[in-house]
């Protein structure tokens, strides 16, 4: 049997239990997405919260990431006399790696932590028990709209990030360093293939699912936390855990998705 007990606590069994709980939680949430009745109003509210409210920070992040990628690649490529590859380098690195990952990290910080704290406080104040008392399915009312909203919003935000980043790269490459605009865009259009788009899209979907899964599950199971920290301190703890765990899981998934597609 599983025996890794320290101080009378079986950590291994605890880990397996938490993984199982989170897995069942995800399946319950996803099941509510595909089965009627569909709740449109909470979904719109969550898309507004995850998507629209993040738009500005994504645009600003995208411009600067695109600019710094173009700057770095320009400086590297100019040493080999291959400045015509600038567009391809910027397009590929944004599409395959930087776009999904940086968008994911920004959304974890902006929306994931807030969602975890919100649901954690609901659990703290027994609001989730109250929903169950009123025969309102908390999975359908709280979890499914957030999961679906993330699956819709994160790929769209990633697309905005990449497009704006390409624009930022254009500004640095073409306007500041006078690379020809034709070689920037044609080089990019030639180098970026359909499979790169698929890779970027897959990553953003996976990242969106992971970050909201971790955030909602951490908040939802606040009262089951084995460390015995509850109340406002418990909310602060699970929010921190959410940001750390979802970032790490996301970067781990990034490698897995890359190696599966390449």
């Amino acid at each position: 049997m599983l025996t890794l007990a320290i101080d009378g606590k079986n950590y291994l069994l605890d880990l397996v239990e938490r993984l199982g709980r989170a897995g069942i939680f995800l399946l319950m949430g996803l099941w509510r997405i595909v089965t009627p009745p569909y709740k449109l109003q909470p979904l719109i509210k969550q898309i507004y919260f995850i998507g629209s409210r993040s738009l500005l920070v994504i645009v600003v992040a995208g411009v600067f990431v695109g600019m710094v990628v173009a700057l770095q690649f320009y400086d590297t490529l100019v040493r080999f006399g291959s400045v015509s590859l600038l567009g391809a380098a910027v397009g590929l690195s944004l599409m395959r790696e930087l776009g999904p990952v940086i968008t994911g990290l920004v959304i974890i910080g902006r929306a994931g932590s807030a969602i975890c704290a919100e649901i954690g406080i609901m659990r703290n104040e027994s609001q989730i028990d109250a929903l169950e008392c009123m025969a309102i399915d908390p999975y359908r009312y709280l979890i499914a709209p957030r999961l679906l909203a993330a699956l819709i919003s994160v790929p769209l935000l990633t697309a905005v990030f990449i497009t704006v980043g390409i624009g930022g790269g254009y500004f640095v490459g073409v306007i500041l360093f006078e690379v020809s605009p034709g070689s920037y865009f044609i080089g990019m259009y030639d180098a970026v293939l359909w499979q790169d788009i698929v890779m970027g899209a897959t990553k953003s979907l996976v990242f969106g699912l992971i970050m909201i899964w971790v955030a909602t599950a951490k908040g939802f199971f606040l009262h089951l936390d084995k460390s015995g920290v509850h109340g406002s301190e418990g909310v602060s703890k699970v929010t921190t855990d959410t940001v750390v765990l979802s970032s790490i899981t996301m970067l781990f998934a990034d490698y897995i998705v890359s190696s599966l597609i390449l």
């Binding site: 719109i44 509210k45 898309i47 507004y48 998507g51 629209s52 738009l55 397009g91 599409m95 819709i152 919003s153 790929p155 769209l156 935000l157 697309a159 905005v160 990449i162 497009t163 704006v164 990019m188 259009y189 970026v192 293939l193 359909w194 790169d196 788009i197 970027g200």
Partner: peptide, 27 residues
């Protein structure tokens, strides 16, 4: 207002997505 703002986000996102798919992905 909430719906309009959400709609604006969706439109911007879809425009960017289709730009990437059609221009870069040669769909």
């Amino acid at each position: 207002k909430l719906q309009v703002l959400t709609g604006i986000f969706m439109v911007i996102g879809l425009i960017c997505l289709s730009y990437l798919a059609i221009k870069l992905g040669e769909l």
